[in-house]
């Protein structure tokens, strides 16, 4: 019995050096490892797609607490999807815990194509918003893949009790002003779609009017309600494609062709 203590102290010391067991608090926002993931992904996407008139990308969403399913999606995308990049439409975590972000990042980092993440309502819980900002970057961002402009927005107004500019029309105005002359098409991505419980529905129509001023608005992307579906909330020809949660084991693949066409696939994995 006397010999037990040194052995266990030794194993505890091993654990200490082995992994991230010294935790201050589940909500400590003490981020280790990769940061600014979106900015680096955008750099890769813009460089790889520069000058191109077609683009192919995958969409995943709502992977919270479905790590095994996310790992399967990542493996499937790497093996079969042949895409330029991947968009995650938000809800990487269920509780906004710092470790949840790290566990989900560990899965997503195995993606071979660059990936960008949007913020979901669950990601805003506790200090989750701060962790998201550190790990991925500003929740509103945009990038160009060839001649197509991608706008990624925080639409979880309900999480801020409508007291913060969500969706941020200031960001949209600045982004529209900064748009390059070569932009032929636009895709708008968000977590919560207009008329959902999280969206600031008082401005839903205004929001739609605003994003329709982008050149060649193709369609919108969203997640949040965990089912793979498509709908046209404003009956104006702008389709919202919703990607189901990881539990549905599906991801979406979009191909925007040189002749202006769109190919939409739902992939089961």
């Amino acid at each position: 019995m006397e010999n037990l203590f040194p052995i266990s102290v030794f194993s505890a010391a091993l654990l200490l050096t082995g992994c991230d067991v010294l935790e201050v608090h589940p909500y400590d926002a003490h981020v280790e490892g990769e940061r600014h993931i979106n900015a680096r992904a955008v750099e890769r996407i813009e460089a790889a797609c520069a000058g191109r008139d077609s683009v192919r990308f995958a969409v995943v969403s709502d992977t919270q607490r479905w790590y095994d399913e996310t790992a399967a999606a990542v493996a499937h995308i790497n093996a079969h999807a042949d895409v330029d990049f991947v968009i995650h439409c938000g809800d990487l975590t269920d509780f906004g815990l710092t470790r949840e972000f790290e566990w989900m990042r560990r899965e997503l980092e195995r993606l071979e194509p660059p990936y960008v993440c949007l913020i979901g309502n669950h990601d805003c819980l506790g200090t989750g918003g701060d962790v998201f900002r550190t790990m991925f970057g500003d929740p509103n961002f945009s990038f160009d893949a060839g001649d197509t402009h991608f706008v990624c927005l925080n639409t979880n107004a309900f999480e801020y009790d409508y007291s913060v500019a969500v969706p941020d029309f200031g960001f949209l105005r600045d982004d529209l002003e900064a748009l390059g002359p070569d932009t032929r098409r636009t895709v708008v991505a968000m977590h919560a779609m207009p008329f959902s419980d999280q969206f600031n529905n008082n401005v839903a129509e205004v929001f739609q009017e605003k994003i329709r001023t982008y050149p060649g608005l193709q369609f919108c992307l969203c997640g949040h309600q965990h089912t793979t579906t498509q709908f046209e909330p404003f009956d104006d020809g702008v389709v919202y494609y919703e990607c189901g949660s990881a539990a549905k084991r599906q991801y979406l693949v979009f191909t925007l062709t040189a002749d202006g066409g769109l190919k939409y696939e739902v992939v089961d994995y």
Partner: peptide
């Protein structure tokens, strides 16, 4: 988080 996921291991959820 760990119970339904093989990808989240024991070492991931321990705190010293």
């Amino acid at each position: 988080s760990a119970l339904p996921n093989r990808r989240v291991r024991l070492g991931d959820i321990l705190t010293l």
